Amino acid sequence: MHGAVAIVANHRGELLMHLRDAYPHIAWPAHWSLLGGQSEFDEKPIDTIVRELQEEAGLQVESLTELFDIHDVDGSKQLVTFFSSIWEGDVSDLVLTEGVKLQFFDPAYLRNLVIPPFIRDGIHRYLTIRTLPQPSHS
């Protein structure tokens, strides 16, 4: 099994986090995570994340960068491909169809959230390699 998640950041460097439902039958119930999910059939990870962003939140991003894979050994048991993107929209405009809430957080605040270990690892890896958009000087 394979999955895909997206680290979506805004120009301030805040990350979009997704509070998962508390259903006991899902992986990582009531945890803050990233938008994403499981691949269907022979779907490529890029197609999975585009579909999942649309299905879970009505979110369409302009571009996605494939980052790395991490194995979720404690939850879904899937190999998960991480992607990154920049999105400058308003979270209140998104239509959440899965989970409880979407919210942007400053990365320093993430230590206060309950996050699956593999997601926390992926975010940490992302933060060490990311480059923030530079403000334009007109």
Score class of each variant (00 low, 15 high):
residue 126 Y to H: 13
residue 8 V to R: 12
residue 62 E to C: 14
residue 131 T to I: 08
residue 50 V to Q: 14
residue 70 I to R: 04
residue 86 I to D: 06
residue 38 Q to H: 05
residue 15 L to G: 03
residue 95 V to C: 14
residue 49 I to E: 01
residue 26 I to M: 09
residue 19 L to E: 02
residue 50 V to R: 14
residue 72 D to S: 05
residue 21 D to F: 07
residue 69 D to Q: 13
residue 38 Q to R: 12
residue 108 A to Q: 11
residue 105 F to D: 01
residue 99 G to K: 06
residue 46 I to L: 15
residue 53 L to Y: 08
residue 65 T to C: 11
residue 45 P to G: 02
residue 91 V to T: 11
residue 13 G to R: 00
residue 21 D to Y: 07
residue 117 P to Q: 02
residue 63 S to K: 15
residue 115 I to F: 11
residue 36 G to A: 09
residue 136 S to N: 09
residue 58 G to L: 10
residue 45 P to S: 00
residue 22 A to W: 05
residue 111 R to D: 10
residue 125 R to H: 09
residue 80 V to P: 02
residue 65 T to R: 15
residue 35 L to P: 03
residue 37 G to R: 05
residue 54 Q to N: 13
residue 56 E to S: 11
residue 57 A to R: 02
residue 116 P to H: 05
residue 120 R to D: 06
residue 65 T to N: 11
residue 55 E to V: 10
residue 39 S to D: 05
residue 66 E to Y: 13
residue 51 R to Q: 07
residue 54 Q to G: 10
residue 61 V to T: 06
residue 32 W to F: 04
residue 89 G to R: 12
residue 102 L to A: 08
residue 3 G to Q: 04
residue 57 A to W: 08
residue 12 R to E: 10
residue 123 I to R: 09
residue 27 A to C: 01
residue 101 K to L: 14
residue 12 R to Q: 12
residue 121 D to Y: 11
residue 81 T to G: 02
residue 5 V to E: 04
residue 131 T to W: 11
residue 16 L to M: 12
